[in-house]
C-alpha cells in the first residue's frame, strides 16, 4: 500500500469539475484507491462518495492505493490536486 497526504488549496475544494476530474483520473488505475478525510474513508473511484465527503478549501485528505500501480496512482492524483490549486489562483 502507498499513501500521501495533501491539503486542498483551491477555492472550490473537490467539487463539481475538480471532483469529476479527480474520479475520472482515479478510474484510470487498476489499484483500489481510497480517499480519507477526518478518519472517514471512501472509494476514490465513486463520484458520489467523493462528493459526499464535502472536501473544501483547507481540507486535509489522504490518498491511498493498493495494487500493481499504487505508486503511480497516488502520485498522479496528488499532482492533479496541486494543479487545481495552481489554476485557481
Amino acid at each position: 500500500m502507498f499513501e500521501k497526504t495533501v491539503i486542498i488549496k483551491n477555492k472550490t475544494g473537490l467539487h463539481a469539475r475538480p471532483a469529476s476530474q479527480f474520479v475520472q483520473t482515479a478510474n484510470k488505475f487498476k489499484s483500489n484507491i481510497k480517499l480519507t478525510k477526518d478518519e472517514k474513508s471512501v472509494d476514490a473511484k465513486s463520484i458520489i462518495e467523493v462528493l459526499s465527503m464535502g472536501i473544501n478549501q483547507g481540507s486535509k485528505i489522504t490518498i491511498s492505493a493498493d495494487g500493481e500501480d499504487e505508486k503511480e496512482a497516488v502520485n498522479t492524483l496528488i499532482k492533479l490536486v496541486e494543479q487545481f490549486a495552481a489554476e485557481s489562483t
Binding site: 471532483a19 463520484i47 458520489i48
Partner: peptide
C-alpha cells in the same frame, strides 16, 4: 458542456 460530465459519471458510479 462540461457541466454534464459529473452527471455522466454518476450514472457510471459503482456506489449507485
Amino acid at each position: 458542456a462540461k457541466i454534464f460530465d459529473a452527471h455522466l459519471m454518476i450514472l457510471d458510479d459503482p456506489t449507485l
